[in-house]
C-alpha cells in the first residue's frame, strides 16, 4: 500500500521545484509540468520497476520516455528527487553550461534521460523501438512514454500508434496528458482532437482512462491496472485527465501558463499555496 501522505508531500515539493526553476530563469513551462506532478511522482515511486543508478541501456528495468519535453521542470524535479542527480542541480535549470537544458537531452549526460525531446511527436516512436529491443533481449520489463494531448496533432504519432498496434508491441504503456490546452488556446479551438479514446481503440490499442489525473489515489491504481493489461497482444494507452497548472489556483484551467514563468509576487503567492514539505533545493 502506497504511503499517500509521503507521496503528497513529494508532490507539493515537486510543485515548488517547478515554480522555483522557471521563476529563476524567467522561462520554461510550468503549466503542463504542474499538471503532471502527481503522475511523475506516482510513476517513479510506485509504478516503475527501476534501478537506483542510471544506465543508458535500461536493461532489466522499466524505462520512461518523455515525448513532450517542454515539461522538463517536472521531469528534472522527479529525477533529482528519485536520486538520479543532486537536487541542488535544479538550480542550474536553463543556465549556460547546465545539464538541465530547456528541453531534456542526452547530450550533456544528465542521468535519467535516454533521448532528447522537445520537437514534438517523436517520443512514442522511440519508446516502441526501446520496447522492441527489450523483446529481442528477452527483457520482460515495460517501456513507458508520456505525450501531451496537443502533441497528438503531430502526424508521426499516428505512424507510431499504427505500428505498435499492428505489431503487438504490448510491453508499452503510452500515457496521454489530456489537459485540453496548448500554447494558442484550448485543443478544441486550435485543432480539435476528436474522440481520443475512439481513435486509439480504432488503431487497435487497449485504452484506459484515469479521470482524476491529479489524484494519486486514482493514478496509482489506474497505472497498476495498465501494467496488468500489458503482455496481452496490444499496446496500452492511458488517457490521463489532468488540469494544467494544477496546485496553483491562478494557473489552473487556462493555457496562459503553458510557457510563462511567474514574477516575484506570483511566485510568492504560488509557493504559499504549497508550503515546504521535504525542503527546497
Amino acid at each position: 500500500m502506497a504511503d499517500y501522505k509521503a507521496l503528497e508531500d513529494l508532490v507539493i515539493q515537486v510543485r515548488r521545484d517547478i515554480l522555483r526553476q522557471v521563476h529563476k530563469v524567467n522561462s520554461g513551462h510550468p503549466g503542463g509540468s504542474l499538471g503532471c506532478a502527481e503522475f511523475f511522482v506516482a510513476l517513479y515511486n510506485e509504478i516503475m520497476e527501476r534501478k537506483d543508478s542510471f544506465a543508458m541501456d535500461g536493461k532489466d528495468e522499466d524505462i520512461f520516455f518523455l515525448s513532450n519535453g517542454h515539461i522538463s521542470p517536472v521531469f528534472y524535479s522527479v529525477l533529482a528527487r528519485s536520486g538520479y542527480f543532486p537536487v541542488e542541480e535544479l538550480n542550474t535549470f536553463r543556465l549556460l553550461n547546465s545539464r538541465l537544458q530547456g528541453h531534456p537531452t542526452t547530450h550533456e549526460g544528465l542521468p535519467g534521460v535516454r533521448i532528447a525531446s522537445g520537437s514534438l511527436g517523436q517520443g512514442i516512436s522511440a519508446a516502441i523501438g526501446a520496447a522492441l529491443a527489450k523483446k529481442l533481449n528477452n527483457d520482460n520489463h515495460i517501456v513507458y512514454a508520456l505525450c501531451g494531448d496537443g502533441e497528438l496533432q503531430e502526424g508521426q504519432n499516428w505512424e507510431a500508434i499504427m505500428y505498435a498496434a499492428g505489431n503487438s508491441v504490448d510491453n508499452l504503456i503510452v500515457t496521454v496528458d489530456l489537459n485540453g490546452q496548448q500554447i494558442d488556446g484550448s485543443t478544441d479551438n486550435v485543432l480539435p482532437l476528436g474522440n481520443v479514446r475512439a481513435k486509439f481503440e480504432a488503431f487497435g490499442w487497449d485504452v484506459l482512462d484515469i479521470k482524476e489525473g491529479n489524484d494519486l489515489k486514482a493514478i496509482i491504481p489506474g497505472m497498476q491496472k495498465a501494467k496488468e493489461r500489458t503482455g496481452n497482444g496490444k499496446p496500452v494507452c492511458v488517457l490521463l485527465h489532468t488540469v494544467m497548472g494544477n496546485g496553483v489556483d491562478f494557473m489552473m484551467h487556462t493555457h496562459d501558463w503553458h510557457g510563462k514563468a511567474p514574477n516575484d509576487e506570483q511566485l510568492e503567492n504560488a509557493l504559499s499555496q504549497n508550503p515546504v514539505t521535504l525542503g527546497d533545493y
Binding site: 533521448i115 517523436q122 526501446a130 529491443a133 502526424g155 508521426q156 507510431a160 499492428g166
Partner: peptide, 18 residues
Amino acid sequence: GIAEANMIGMAAGMTIGG
C-alpha cells in the same frame, strides 16, 4: 510501412537496448 518518421524514431529507441 510507409512511415519514415516513425522508422527513424524506432531505430533511435532500439539503440537504447544495445
